[in-house]
Design a protein around this nucleic acid. Structure first.
Lengths: 296, 296
DNA sequence: TGAATCGATTGAAACGATTCAATTTCGGAG
DNA sequence: CTCCGAAATTGAATCGTTTCAATCGATTCA
Protein backbone atom coordinates (compact mmCIF):
# COMPACT_ATOMS: atom_id res chain seq x y z
CA UNK A 1 0.00 0.00 0.00
CA UNK A 2 2.71 2.45 0.99
CA UNK A 3 4.95 1.08 -1.73
CA UNK A 4 2.43 2.02 -4.38
CA UNK A 5 1.88 5.36 -2.63
CA UNK A 6 -1.75 4.58 -2.39
CA UNK A 7 -3.88 7.22 -0.72
CA UNK A 8 -7.42 6.13 -0.18
CA UNK A 9 -10.19 8.29 -1.45
CA UNK A 10 -12.30 9.45 1.45
CA UNK A 11 -14.92 10.89 -0.87
CA UNK A 12 -15.70 7.46 -2.21
CA UNK A 13 -15.78 5.91 1.23
CA UNK A 14 -18.01 8.66 2.46
CA UNK A 15 -20.40 8.28 -0.42
CA UNK A 16 -20.72 4.60 0.25
CA UNK A 17 -20.93 4.82 4.04
CA UNK A 18 -23.18 7.84 3.99
CA UNK A 19 -21.04 9.73 6.44
CA UNK A 20 -17.60 11.25 6.60
CA UNK A 21 -14.84 11.09 9.16
CA UNK A 22 -15.13 14.73 10.06
CA UNK A 23 -16.97 16.49 12.79
CA UNK A 24 -18.10 20.09 12.73
CA UNK A 25 -17.63 22.65 15.47
CA UNK A 26 -19.56 25.89 15.42
CA UNK A 27 -18.45 28.57 17.87
CA UNK A 28 -19.38 32.24 18.15
CA UNK A 29 -15.81 33.54 18.25
CA UNK A 30 -12.69 31.46 17.83
CA UNK A 31 -10.68 34.51 18.87
CA UNK A 32 -11.91 34.00 22.42
CA UNK A 33 -9.37 31.77 24.20
CA UNK A 34 -12.24 30.11 26.00
CA UNK A 35 -13.33 28.53 22.76
CA UNK A 36 -9.85 27.60 21.65
CA UNK A 37 -9.38 25.76 24.92
CA UNK A 38 -12.66 23.98 24.36
CA UNK A 39 -11.52 23.19 20.84
CA UNK A 40 -8.34 21.64 22.15
CA UNK A 41 -10.36 19.40 24.40
CA UNK A 42 -12.34 18.34 21.37
CA UNK A 43 -9.19 17.79 19.37
CA UNK A 44 -7.96 15.31 21.96
CA UNK A 45 -10.95 13.13 21.21
CA UNK A 46 -11.23 13.60 17.46
CA UNK A 47 -7.55 12.94 17.03
CA UNK A 48 -7.86 9.69 18.94
CA UNK A 49 -10.93 8.74 16.91
CA UNK A 50 -9.12 9.38 13.62
CA UNK A 51 -11.49 12.16 12.74
CA UNK A 52 -10.91 15.65 11.42
CA UNK A 53 -12.35 18.80 12.91
CA UNK A 54 -14.05 21.43 10.79
CA UNK A 55 -14.04 24.67 12.72
CA UNK A 56 -16.73 27.24 11.92
CA UNK A 57 -16.75 30.71 13.39
CA UNK A 58 -20.32 31.98 13.41
CA UNK A 59 -19.08 35.40 14.46
CA UNK A 60 -22.06 35.67 16.79
CA UNK A 61 -24.39 35.74 13.83
CA UNK A 62 -27.41 33.50 13.35
CA UNK A 63 -27.16 33.81 9.58
CA UNK A 64 -23.58 32.59 9.43
CA UNK A 65 -24.48 29.87 11.86
CA UNK A 66 -27.24 28.74 9.52
CA UNK A 67 -24.94 28.75 6.54
CA UNK A 68 -22.33 26.66 8.24
CA UNK A 69 -24.97 24.25 9.48
CA UNK A 70 -26.11 23.70 5.92
CA UNK A 71 -22.58 23.19 4.68
CA UNK A 72 -21.86 20.72 7.43
CA UNK A 73 -24.99 18.78 6.58
CA UNK A 74 -23.88 18.67 2.95
CA UNK A 75 -20.53 17.36 4.06
CA UNK A 76 -22.35 14.54 5.81
CA UNK A 77 -20.27 15.12 8.89
CA UNK A 78 -20.23 12.49 11.59
CA UNK A 79 -21.80 15.02 13.89
CA UNK A 80 -21.87 18.62 14.94
CA UNK A 81 -20.76 20.30 18.14
CA UNK A 82 -22.69 23.49 18.43
CA UNK A 83 -22.31 26.52 20.66
CA UNK A 84 -25.51 28.30 19.65
CA UNK A 85 -25.79 32.06 19.69
CA UNK A 86 -29.55 32.08 19.57
CA UNK A 87 -32.16 29.39 19.85
CA UNK A 88 -30.80 26.13 18.48
CA UNK A 89 -34.26 24.73 17.73
CA UNK A 90 -33.94 25.09 13.96
CA UNK A 91 -30.53 23.51 13.86
CA UNK A 92 -31.67 20.61 15.98
CA UNK A 93 -34.58 19.61 13.79
CA UNK A 94 -32.70 20.24 10.59
CA UNK A 95 -29.86 17.94 11.51
CA UNK A 96 -32.13 15.39 13.14
CA UNK A 97 -34.08 14.76 9.97
CA UNK A 98 -30.79 14.25 8.16
CA UNK A 99 -29.75 11.80 10.85
CA UNK A 100 -26.75 13.84 11.88
CA UNK A 101 -25.96 13.80 15.61
CA UNK A 102 -25.79 17.16 17.33
CA UNK A 103 -24.36 17.91 20.73
CA UNK A 104 -25.10 21.28 22.26
CA UNK A 105 -22.01 22.79 23.76
CA UNK A 106 -22.02 25.39 26.51
CA UNK A 107 -25.80 25.34 26.29
CA UNK A 108 -28.16 23.54 28.58
CA UNK A 109 -30.54 21.89 26.14
CA UNK A 110 -34.15 22.08 27.11
CA UNK A 111 -35.15 18.88 25.39
CA UNK A 112 -33.89 15.39 26.07
CA UNK A 113 -33.69 14.62 22.39
CA UNK A 114 -30.02 15.40 22.13
CA UNK A 115 -26.91 15.51 24.26
CA UNK A 116 -25.74 18.72 25.82
CA UNK A 117 -22.66 19.66 27.79
CA UNK A 118 -22.74 22.87 29.70
CA UNK A 119 -21.67 24.67 32.82
CA UNK A 120 -24.15 25.89 35.40
CA UNK A 121 -24.33 29.49 34.26
CA UNK A 122 -26.92 30.54 36.81
CA UNK A 123 -24.64 29.38 39.59
CA UNK A 124 -21.69 31.09 37.94
CA UNK A 125 -23.44 34.41 37.56
CA UNK A 126 -24.66 34.11 41.10
CA UNK A 127 -21.28 33.39 42.67
CA UNK A 128 -19.67 36.29 40.87
CA UNK A 129 -22.21 38.82 42.14
CA UNK A 130 -22.51 37.24 45.57
CA UNK A 131 -18.76 37.60 45.94
CA UNK A 132 -18.92 41.28 45.04
CA UNK A 133 -21.72 41.88 47.55
CA UNK A 134 -19.83 39.95 50.20
CA UNK A 135 -16.80 42.20 49.93
CA UNK A 136 -19.04 45.18 50.58
CA UNK A 137 -20.28 46.48 47.26
CA UNK A 138 -23.81 47.85 47.15
CA UNK A 139 -24.36 48.61 43.49
CA UNK A 140 -23.12 46.13 40.91
CA UNK A 141 -22.87 46.48 37.16
CA UNK A 142 -23.63 43.54 34.90
CA UNK A 143 -21.73 43.76 31.65
CA UNK A 144 -22.83 41.85 28.62
CA UNK A 145 -26.57 41.84 28.25
CA UNK A 146 -26.96 42.24 24.53
CA UNK A 147 -30.12 43.14 22.72
CA UNK A 148 -30.40 39.64 21.29
CA UNK A 149 -30.75 36.98 23.94
CA UNK A 150 -27.51 35.04 24.05
CA UNK A 151 -28.31 31.98 26.16
CA UNK A 152 -25.26 32.10 28.42
CA UNK A 153 -25.79 35.78 29.11
CA UNK A 154 -29.41 35.22 30.04
CA UNK A 155 -28.54 32.55 32.61
CA UNK A 156 -25.68 34.47 34.13
CA UNK A 157 -27.90 37.49 34.48
CA UNK A 158 -30.53 35.36 36.18
CA UNK A 159 -27.86 34.19 38.59
CA UNK A 160 -26.80 37.76 39.23
CA UNK A 161 -30.38 38.74 40.02
CA UNK A 162 -30.69 35.77 42.33
CA UNK A 163 -27.59 36.86 44.24
CA UNK A 164 -29.02 40.35 44.65
CA UNK A 165 -32.32 38.99 45.89
CA UNK A 166 -30.62 36.59 48.28
CA UNK A 167 -28.73 39.46 49.85
CA UNK A 168 -31.89 41.55 50.03
CA UNK A 169 -30.64 44.16 47.60
CA UNK A 170 -33.19 46.02 45.49
CA UNK A 171 -33.34 45.01 41.83
CA UNK A 172 -32.28 48.51 40.82
CA UNK A 173 -28.92 47.99 42.49
CA UNK A 174 -27.99 45.70 39.61
CA UNK A 175 -27.15 47.98 36.71
CA UNK A 176 -27.23 46.37 33.29
CA UNK A 177 -24.49 47.60 30.99
CA UNK A 178 -25.22 46.40 27.46
CA UNK A 179 -22.34 45.91 25.03
CA UNK A 180 -22.21 45.89 21.25
CA UNK A 181 -20.10 42.73 21.27
CA UNK A 182 -18.78 40.16 23.68
CA UNK A 183 -15.10 40.96 23.24
CA UNK A 184 -12.47 43.49 24.32
CA UNK A 185 -14.04 46.27 22.26
CA UNK A 186 -17.35 45.60 23.97
CA UNK A 187 -15.67 45.89 27.34
CA UNK A 188 -14.22 49.26 26.43
CA UNK A 189 -17.64 50.48 25.35
CA UNK A 190 -19.16 49.23 28.58
CA UNK A 191 -16.50 51.04 30.61
CA UNK A 192 -17.43 54.26 28.91
CA UNK A 193 -21.10 53.86 29.66
CA UNK A 194 -20.16 52.99 33.24
CA UNK A 195 -18.22 56.23 33.58
CA UNK A 196 -21.15 58.13 32.09
CA UNK A 197 -23.18 57.25 35.14
CA UNK A 198 -23.20 59.91 37.85
CA UNK A 199 -20.63 58.96 40.51
CA UNK A 200 -23.19 58.58 43.25
CA UNK A 201 -25.29 56.19 41.23
CA UNK A 202 -22.34 54.44 39.64
CA UNK A 203 -21.73 50.79 40.53
CA UNK A 204 -18.53 50.20 42.45
CA UNK A 205 -18.15 46.72 41.02
CA UNK A 206 -18.90 44.98 37.75
CA UNK A 207 -19.49 41.40 36.77
CA UNK A 208 -18.58 40.73 33.15
CA UNK A 209 -20.08 37.94 31.15
CA UNK A 210 -16.67 36.89 29.87
CA UNK A 211 -13.02 37.69 30.41
CA UNK A 212 -12.55 39.58 27.16
CA UNK A 213 -15.17 42.08 28.28
CA UNK A 214 -13.44 42.32 31.65
CA UNK A 215 -10.10 42.97 29.96
CA UNK A 216 -11.56 45.77 27.84
CA UNK A 217 -13.34 47.16 30.87
CA UNK A 218 -10.17 47.21 32.95
CA UNK A 219 -8.05 48.67 30.17
CA UNK A 220 -10.42 51.56 29.66
CA UNK A 221 -10.95 52.17 33.37
CA UNK A 222 -7.23 52.20 34.07
CA UNK A 223 -6.53 54.53 31.17
CA UNK A 224 -9.17 56.90 32.55
CA UNK A 225 -7.35 56.95 35.87
CA UNK A 226 -9.67 54.69 37.81
CA UNK A 227 -8.14 52.24 40.23
CA UNK A 228 -9.00 48.54 40.28
CA UNK A 229 -10.29 47.31 42.64
CA UNK A 230 -10.22 50.60 44.59
CA UNK A 231 -12.68 52.52 42.46
CA UNK A 232 -14.24 49.64 40.61
CA UNK A 233 -13.89 45.95 41.36
CA UNK A 234 -14.06 43.63 38.35
CA UNK A 235 -14.96 39.99 38.00
CA UNK A 236 -14.73 38.19 34.71
CA UNK A 237 -16.01 34.86 33.45
CA UNK A 238 -14.21 31.83 31.94
CA UNK A 239 -10.87 32.30 33.68
CA UNK A 240 -8.89 32.18 30.48
CA UNK A 241 -5.17 31.55 30.86
CA UNK A 242 -4.29 35.20 30.50
CA UNK A 243 -6.49 36.30 33.41
CA UNK A 244 -3.78 35.95 36.01
CA UNK A 245 -1.13 37.70 33.95
CA UNK A 246 -3.11 40.90 33.41
CA UNK A 247 -2.25 44.38 34.63
CA UNK A 248 -4.59 43.68 37.50
CA UNK A 249 -4.91 39.94 37.91
CA UNK A 250 -8.51 39.19 37.16
CA UNK A 251 -10.98 37.44 39.41
CA UNK A 252 -13.02 35.13 37.26
CA UNK A 253 -15.52 32.32 37.24
CA UNK A 254 -13.59 29.34 36.02
CA UNK A 255 -15.15 26.86 33.66
CA UNK A 256 -13.65 23.44 32.92
CA UNK A 257 -12.93 24.41 29.34
CA UNK A 258 -10.91 21.43 28.29
CA UNK A 259 -13.28 18.98 29.98
CA UNK A 260 -16.22 20.69 28.34
CA UNK A 261 -14.78 20.04 24.91
CA UNK A 262 -13.65 16.53 25.68
CA UNK A 263 -16.94 15.38 27.10
CA UNK A 264 -18.94 16.90 24.28
CA UNK A 265 -16.77 15.24 21.67
CA UNK A 266 -16.98 11.92 23.45
CA UNK A 267 -20.76 12.08 23.54
CA UNK A 268 -20.86 12.99 19.88
CA UNK A 269 -18.61 10.14 18.84
CA UNK A 270 -20.69 7.79 20.94
CA UNK A 271 -23.90 8.93 19.35
CA UNK A 272 -22.42 8.60 15.89
CA UNK A 273 -21.00 5.13 16.34
CA UNK A 274 -22.78 3.42 19.19
CA UNK A 275 -26.09 1.83 18.32
CA UNK A 276 -27.62 2.01 21.78
CA UNK A 277 -26.58 5.53 22.57
CA UNK A 278 -28.41 7.31 25.34
CA UNK A 279 -28.60 11.08 25.36
CA UNK A 280 -26.97 12.80 28.29
CA UNK A 281 -27.18 16.26 29.69
CA UNK A 282 -23.88 16.96 31.39
CA UNK A 283 -23.67 20.04 33.59
CA UNK A 284 -20.35 21.04 35.10
CA UNK A 285 -20.08 23.36 38.07
CA UNK A 286 -18.07 26.57 37.82
CA UNK A 287 -15.61 27.81 40.40
CA UNK A 288 -14.83 31.35 41.48
CA UNK A 289 -11.17 32.30 41.37
CA UNK A 290 -10.54 35.45 43.39
CA UNK A 291 -7.60 37.60 42.40
CA UNK A 292 -6.58 41.18 42.85
CA UNK A 293 -9.26 42.76 40.67
CA UNK A 294 -11.85 42.14 43.36
CA UNK A 295 -9.70 41.87 46.40
CA UNK A 296 -8.91 45.36 47.65
CA UNK B 1 -35.32 22.45 -3.79
CA UNK B 2 -35.97 23.95 -0.40
CA UNK B 3 -39.54 22.74 -0.55
CA UNK B 4 -38.40 19.16 -0.83
CA UNK B 5 -35.77 19.81 1.87
CA UNK B 6 -33.12 18.70 -0.51
CA UNK B 7 -29.60 18.76 0.84
CA UNK B 8 -27.02 17.99 -1.76
CA UNK B 9 -24.54 15.29 -1.06
CA UNK B 10 -21.06 16.74 -1.04
CA UNK B 11 -19.47 13.30 -0.90
CA UNK B 12 -20.90 12.45 -4.29
CA UNK B 13 -19.89 15.80 -5.75
CA UNK B 14 -16.43 15.40 -4.36
CA UNK B 15 -16.07 11.94 -5.75
CA UNK B 16 -17.04 13.16 -9.18
CA UNK B 17 -15.01 16.38 -9.14
CA UNK B 18 -12.01 14.80 -7.49
CA UNK B 19 -11.77 17.50 -4.86
CA UNK B 20 -13.75 18.77 -1.94
CA UNK B 21 -14.79 22.21 -0.84
CA UNK B 22 -12.65 22.15 2.25
CA UNK B 23 -9.21 23.47 2.92
CA UNK B 24 -6.88 22.22 5.61
CA UNK B 25 -4.92 24.32 8.07
CA UNK B 26 -2.08 22.82 10.07
CA UNK B 27 -0.73 24.91 12.93
CA UNK B 28 1.65 24.04 15.75
CA UNK B 29 -0.58 25.35 18.54
CA UNK B 30 -4.08 26.67 18.13
CA UNK B 31 -3.94 27.79 21.77
CA UNK B 32 -1.55 30.54 20.72
CA UNK B 33 -3.64 33.63 19.89
CA UNK B 34 -1.24 34.38 17.08
CA UNK B 35 -2.51 31.37 15.20
CA UNK B 36 -6.16 32.01 15.98
CA UNK B 37 -5.78 35.47 14.54
CA UNK B 38 -4.18 33.99 11.46
CA UNK B 39 -7.03 31.49 11.30
CA UNK B 40 -9.56 34.28 11.38
CA UNK B 41 -7.87 35.90 8.45
CA UNK B 42 -8.13 32.61 6.63
CA UNK B 43 -11.75 32.24 7.60
CA UNK B 44 -12.57 35.55 5.95
CA UNK B 45 -11.45 34.11 2.64
CA UNK B 46 -12.77 30.57 2.96
CA UNK B 47 -16.13 31.83 4.07
CA UNK B 48 -16.36 34.06 1.02
CA UNK B 49 -15.28 31.18 -1.22
CA UNK B 50 -17.94 28.90 0.21
CA UNK B 51 -15.34 26.56 1.61
CA UNK B 52 -14.97 24.93 4.98
CA UNK B 53 -11.85 25.01 7.11
CA UNK B 54 -10.39 21.89 8.68
CA UNK B 55 -8.17 22.95 11.55
CA UNK B 56 -5.38 20.62 12.60
CA UNK B 57 -3.25 21.22 15.66
CA UNK B 58 0.09 19.51 15.14
CA UNK B 59 1.02 20.26 18.74
CA UNK B 60 4.55 21.03 17.58
CA UNK B 61 5.05 17.42 16.61
CA UNK B 62 6.28 16.24 13.24
CA UNK B 63 4.49 12.92 13.67
CA UNK B 64 1.10 14.50 14.22
CA UNK B 65 1.79 16.84 11.36
CA UNK B 66 2.42 13.87 9.12
CA UNK B 67 -0.75 12.14 10.21
CA UNK B 68 -2.89 15.17 9.54
CA UNK B 69 -1.25 15.66 6.18
CA UNK B 70 -2.22 12.14 5.20
CA UNK B 71 -5.76 12.59 6.39
CA UNK B 72 -6.10 15.85 4.49
CA UNK B 73 -4.83 14.18 1.35
CA UNK B 74 -7.41 11.45 1.80
CA UNK B 75 -10.08 14.08 2.17
CA UNK B 76 -9.03 15.45 -1.20
CA UNK B 77 -8.98 18.93 0.23
CA UNK B 78 -8.85 21.87 -2.10
CA UNK B 79 -5.52 22.76 -0.60
CA UNK B 80 -3.48 22.93 2.57
CA UNK B 81 -2.20 25.89 4.52
CA UNK B 82 0.76 24.71 6.47
CA UNK B 83 2.74 26.24 9.30
CA UNK B 84 5.52 23.65 9.43
CA UNK B 85 7.33 22.81 12.64
CA UNK B 86 10.24 21.16 10.94
CA UNK B 87 11.30 20.85 7.35
CA UNK B 88 8.25 20.85 5.10
CA UNK B 89 10.06 19.05 2.28
CA UNK B 90 8.23 15.77 2.77
CA UNK B 91 4.84 17.41 2.93
CA UNK B 92 5.51 19.41 -0.18
CA UNK B 93 6.38 16.48 -2.38
CA UNK B 94 3.71 14.26 -0.92
CA UNK B 95 0.95 16.73 -1.68
CA UNK B 96 2.42 17.76 -5.00
CA UNK B 97 2.24 14.27 -6.42
CA UNK B 98 -1.40 14.13 -5.35
CA UNK B 99 -1.98 17.44 -7.07
CA UNK B 100 -3.03 19.18 -3.88
CA UNK B 101 -1.96 22.82 -3.60
CA UNK B 102 0.10 23.74 -0.57
CA UNK B 103 0.85 27.20 0.73
CA UNK B 104 3.52 27.56 3.36
CA UNK B 105 2.40 29.87 6.10
CA UNK B 106 4.74 31.79 8.39
CA UNK B 107 7.59 30.04 6.60
CA UNK B 108 9.78 31.45 3.90
CA UNK B 109 9.82 28.64 1.38
CA UNK B 110 13.20 27.99 -0.14
CA UNK B 111 11.89 26.68 -3.42
CA UNK B 112 9.76 28.51 -5.93
CA UNK B 113 7.60 25.48 -6.48
CA UNK B 114 4.90 26.63 -4.11
CA UNK B 115 3.49 29.77 -2.62
CA UNK B 116 4.59 30.98 0.76
CA UNK B 117 3.48 33.81 2.98
CA UNK B 118 5.73 34.83 5.79
CA UNK B 119 7.07 37.68 7.84
CA UNK B 120 10.69 38.70 7.77
CA UNK B 121 11.81 36.89 10.91
CA UNK B 122 15.43 37.88 10.62
CA UNK B 123 14.43 41.53 10.62
CA UNK B 124 12.05 40.93 13.51
CA UNK B 125 14.64 39.20 15.66
CA UNK B 126 17.09 41.91 14.80
CA UNK B 127 14.85 44.85 15.69
CA UNK B 128 13.96 43.30 19.04
CA UNK B 129 17.56 42.87 20.10
CA UNK B 130 18.72 46.12 18.54
CA UNK B 131 16.09 47.91 20.56
CA UNK B 132 17.30 46.29 23.78
CA UNK B 133 20.90 47.27 23.00
CA UNK B 134 19.83 50.79 22.13
CA UNK B 135 18.25 51.34 25.52
CA UNK B 136 21.53 50.38 27.13
CA UNK B 137 21.53 46.67 27.76
CA UNK B 138 24.84 44.84 27.36
CA UNK B 139 23.92 41.22 27.81
CA UNK B 140 20.74 39.94 26.20
CA UNK B 141 18.97 36.63 26.66
CA UNK B 142 17.33 34.91 23.71
CA UNK B 143 14.43 32.76 24.80
CA UNK B 144 13.12 30.00 22.63
CA UNK B 145 15.90 28.13 20.89
CA UNK B 146 14.68 24.59 21.11
CA UNK B 147 16.69 21.49 20.50
CA UNK B 148 14.85 20.82 17.27
CA UNK B 149 15.23 23.57 14.71
CA UNK B 150 11.92 25.40 14.46
CA UNK B 151 12.25 27.56 11.35
CA UNK B 152 10.93 30.79 12.85
CA UNK B 153 13.20 30.44 15.87
CA UNK B 154 16.23 29.91 13.71
CA UNK B 155 15.62 33.08 11.70
CA UNK B 156 14.86 35.23 14.71
CA UNK B 157 18.01 34.01 16.39
CA UNK B 158 19.98 34.87 13.26
CA UNK B 159 18.49 38.35 13.42
CA UNK B 160 19.41 38.64 17.08
CA UNK B 161 23.00 37.65 16.30
CA UNK B 162 23.08 40.20 13.51
CA UNK B 163 21.96 42.94 15.87
CA UNK B 164 24.70 42.02 18.32
CA UNK B 165 27.32 42.04 15.59
CA UNK B 166 26.10 45.37 14.22
CA UNK B 167 26.50 46.94 17.63
CA UNK B 168 29.94 45.37 18.04
CA UNK B 169 28.91 43.20 20.93
CA UNK B 170 30.73 39.89 21.44
CA UNK B 171 28.77 36.80 20.50
CA UNK B 172 28.91 35.61 24.10
CA UNK B 173 26.80 38.58 25.16
CA UNK B 174 23.82 36.87 23.59
CA UNK B 175 22.74 34.17 26.01
CA UNK B 176 20.60 31.42 24.59
CA UNK B 177 17.88 30.25 26.96
CA UNK B 178 16.35 27.07 25.57
CA UNK B 179 12.78 26.19 26.48
CA UNK B 180 10.94 22.88 26.56
CA UNK B 181 7.99 24.40 24.72
CA UNK B 182 6.98 27.61 23.03
CA UNK B 183 4.21 28.56 25.44
CA UNK B 184 3.67 30.07 28.88
CA UNK B 185 5.10 27.03 30.65
CA UNK B 186 8.21 27.33 28.51
CA UNK B 187 8.57 30.97 29.52
CA UNK B 188 8.38 30.06 33.18
CA UNK B 189 11.07 27.45 32.71
CA UNK B 190 13.25 29.97 30.86
CA UNK B 191 12.81 32.49 33.68
CA UNK B 192 14.10 29.93 36.14
CA UNK B 193 17.16 29.17 34.09
CA UNK B 194 17.71 32.92 33.73
CA UNK B 195 17.66 33.36 37.49
CA UNK B 196 20.07 30.44 37.85
CA UNK B 197 22.72 32.51 36.11
CA UNK B 198 25.07 34.37 38.46
CA UNK B 199 23.84 38.00 38.76
CA UNK B 200 26.99 39.45 37.22
CA UNK B 201 26.74 37.29 34.14
CA UNK B 202 22.95 37.41 33.95
CA UNK B 203 21.37 39.21 30.98
CA UNK B 204 19.48 42.36 31.91
CA UNK B 205 17.11 41.94 29.01
CA UNK B 206 15.49 39.08 27.14
CA UNK B 207 14.03 38.71 23.69
CA UNK B 208 11.39 35.99 23.54
CA UNK B 209 10.51 34.16 20.40
CA UNK B 210 6.81 34.63 21.04
CA UNK B 211 4.50 36.44 23.42
CA UNK B 212 3.42 33.37 25.34
CA UNK B 213 7.03 32.78 26.34
CA UNK B 214 7.30 36.43 27.33
CA UNK B 215 4.18 36.16 29.45
CA UNK B 216 5.50 33.11 31.29
CA UNK B 217 8.86 34.79 31.68
CA UNK B 218 7.33 37.94 33.16
CA UNK B 219 4.99 36.03 35.46
CA UNK B 220 7.82 34.03 36.96
CA UNK B 221 10.19 36.98 37.22
CA UNK B 222 7.58 39.13 38.95
CA UNK B 223 6.65 36.36 41.36
CA UNK B 224 10.34 36.02 42.24
CA UNK B 225 10.45 39.70 43.10
CA UNK B 226 12.23 40.94 39.99
CA UNK B 227 11.11 44.22 38.50
CA UNK B 228 10.30 44.68 34.83
CA UNK B 229 11.89 46.48 33.11
CA UNK B 230 14.08 47.59 36.06
CA UNK B 231 15.85 44.28 36.66
CA UNK B 232 15.04 42.60 33.40
CA UNK B 233 13.58 44.15 30.27
CA UNK B 234 11.39 41.87 28.15
CA UNK B 235 10.45 41.94 24.50
CA UNK B 236 8.02 39.45 23.03
CA UNK B 237 7.09 38.49 19.50
CA UNK B 238 3.74 38.50 17.66
CA UNK B 239 2.10 41.33 19.59
CA UNK B 240 -0.99 39.33 20.41
CA UNK B 241 -3.98 41.31 21.56
CA UNK B 242 -3.35 40.61 25.22
CA UNK B 243 0.17 42.06 25.14
CA UNK B 244 -0.91 45.56 26.07
CA UNK B 245 -3.24 44.45 28.86
CA UNK B 246 -0.61 42.52 30.78
CA UNK B 247 0.70 43.25 34.28
CA UNK B 248 3.57 44.99 32.55
CA UNK B 249 2.46 45.98 29.06
CA UNK B 250 4.67 43.98 26.76
CA UNK B 251 6.90 45.33 24.05
CA UNK B 252 6.57 43.06 21.07
CA UNK B 253 7.39 42.58 17.43
CA UNK B 254 4.08 42.89 15.67
CA UNK B 255 3.21 40.67 12.77
CA UNK B 256 0.29 41.31 10.43
CA UNK B 257 -1.52 38.23 11.66
CA UNK B 258 -4.81 38.74 9.94
CA UNK B 259 -3.18 39.76 6.67
CA UNK B 260 -0.92 36.75 6.87
CA UNK B 261 -3.90 34.41 6.98
CA UNK B 262 -5.88 36.28 4.37
CA UNK B 263 -3.11 36.41 1.83
CA UNK B 264 -2.21 32.78 2.28
CA UNK B 265 -5.81 31.69 1.84
CA UNK B 266 -6.19 33.87 -1.25
CA UNK B 267 -3.11 32.36 -2.83
CA UNK B 268 -4.34 28.88 -2.03
CA UNK B 269 -7.76 29.46 -3.52
CA UNK B 270 -6.13 30.96 -6.58
CA UNK B 271 -3.86 27.98 -7.02
CA UNK B 272 -6.77 25.59 -6.60
CA UNK B 273 -9.11 27.29 -9.05
CA UNK B 274 -7.08 29.43 -11.40
CA UNK B 275 -5.54 27.60 -14.32
CA UNK B 276 -2.68 30.00 -14.91
CA UNK B 277 -1.68 30.42 -11.31
CA UNK B 278 1.77 31.77 -10.61
CA UNK B 279 3.49 30.95 -7.34
CA UNK B 280 4.25 33.87 -5.09
CA UNK B 281 6.50 34.34 -2.13
CA UNK B 282 4.97 37.06 0.00
CA UNK B 283 7.08 38.47 2.81
CA UNK B 284 5.57 40.98 5.20
CA UNK B 285 7.67 43.25 7.37
CA UNK B 286 7.29 43.21 11.15
CA UNK B 287 7.04 46.27 13.36
CA UNK B 288 8.38 46.84 16.84
CA UNK B 289 5.83 48.04 19.39
CA UNK B 290 7.55 49.45 22.45
CA UNK B 291 5.67 49.34 25.72
CA UNK B 292 6.55 49.44 29.38
CA UNK B 293 8.30 46.07 29.57
CA UNK B 294 11.32 47.53 27.79
CA UNK B 295 10.91 51.17 28.57
CA UNK B 296 12.26 51.85 32.04
C1' DT C 1 -44.43 21.72 -46.17
C1' DG C 2 -39.90 20.10 -45.22
C1' DA C 3 -35.41 20.71 -43.57
C1' DA C 4 -32.23 22.66 -40.52
C1' DT C 5 -30.86 24.67 -36.22
C1' DC C 6 -31.08 25.50 -31.55
C1' DG C 7 -32.54 24.57 -26.94
C1' DA C 8 -34.30 21.44 -23.73
C1' DT C 9 -34.92 16.98 -21.86
C1' DT C 10 -33.58 12.33 -21.08
C1' DG C 11 -30.18 8.67 -20.63
C1' DA C 12 -26.04 6.54 -19.45
C1' DA C 13 -21.40 6.30 -17.83
C1' DA C 14 -18.05 7.50 -14.46
C1' DC C 15 -15.85 8.67 -9.89
C1' DG C 16 -13.64 4.70 -6.03
C1' DA C 17 -14.60 2.24 -1.97
C1' DT C 18 -17.62 -1.10 0.09
C1' DT C 19 -20.55 -5.06 0.57
C1' DC C 20 -22.55 -9.20 -0.41
C1' DA C 21 -23.09 -12.95 -3.40
C1' DA C 22 -20.92 -16.23 -6.37
C1' DT C 23 -17.17 -18.75 -7.61
C1' DT C 24 -12.79 -20.84 -6.99
C1' DT C 25 -9.13 -22.84 -4.16
C1' DC C 26 -7.38 -25.57 -0.66
C1' DG C 27 -7.15 -28.89 3.08
C1' DG C 28 -8.66 -32.69 5.47
C1' DA C 29 -11.43 -36.66 6.09
C1' DG C 30 -13.64 -40.68 4.43
C1' DC D 1 -8.87 -40.56 -4.93
C1' DT D 2 -13.08 -38.25 -4.15
C1' DC D 3 -16.01 -35.26 -1.77
C1' DC D 4 -17.34 -31.75 1.48
C1' DG D 5 -16.66 -27.63 4.09
C1' DA D 6 -14.07 -23.65 4.99
C1' DA D 7 -11.40 -20.06 3.31
C1' DA D 8 -10.04 -17.11 -0.18
C1' DT D 9 -10.81 -14.74 -4.37
C1' DT D 10 -13.53 -12.64 -7.92
C1' DG D 11 -17.51 -10.14 -9.56
C1' DA D 12 -21.20 -7.03 -9.60
C1' DA D 13 -24.12 -3.63 -7.65
C1' DT D 14 -24.48 0.49 -4.99
C1' DC D 15 -23.89 5.27 -3.04
C1' DG D 16 -25.46 10.56 -5.61
C1' DT D 17 -23.66 13.80 -8.45
C1' DT D 18 -21.72 15.38 -12.75
C1' DT D 19 -20.85 15.35 -17.57
C1' DC D 20 -21.44 14.31 -22.09
C1' DA D 21 -24.00 12.21 -25.65
C1' DA D 22 -28.32 11.32 -27.69
C1' DT D 23 -32.95 12.11 -28.35
C1' DC D 24 -36.80 15.01 -28.67
C1' DG D 25 -39.38 19.22 -29.54
C1' DA D 26 -39.96 23.59 -31.30
C1' DT D 27 -38.98 27.47 -34.09
C1' DT D 28 -37.31 29.56 -38.28
C1' DC D 29 -36.25 29.89 -42.94
C1' DA D 30 -36.18 28.28 -47.65
Amino acid sequence: MTALRYVRNESARQLRRGQSRTIGLIVPDIGNPFFTDVARGIEDVTSAADALLIVCDSDNGADKEERYLTMLAEQQVLGVLHVPVGSPAGAITRLRERGIPLVLLDYKGASRKQCSVSVNDVAGGEMAVRHLLDIGHKRVGFVGAESKPVPQVVDRLAGARKAMADRKRPAGALVILPTPSLNVAGGIAAARSLLDIAPLRRPTAVSCVNDLLAIGMMQELLSRGMRIPGDVAVVGYDDIGFAEALAVPLSSVRQPRHQLGRRAAELLIDEATNEDHRHERVVFEPELIVRESSNG
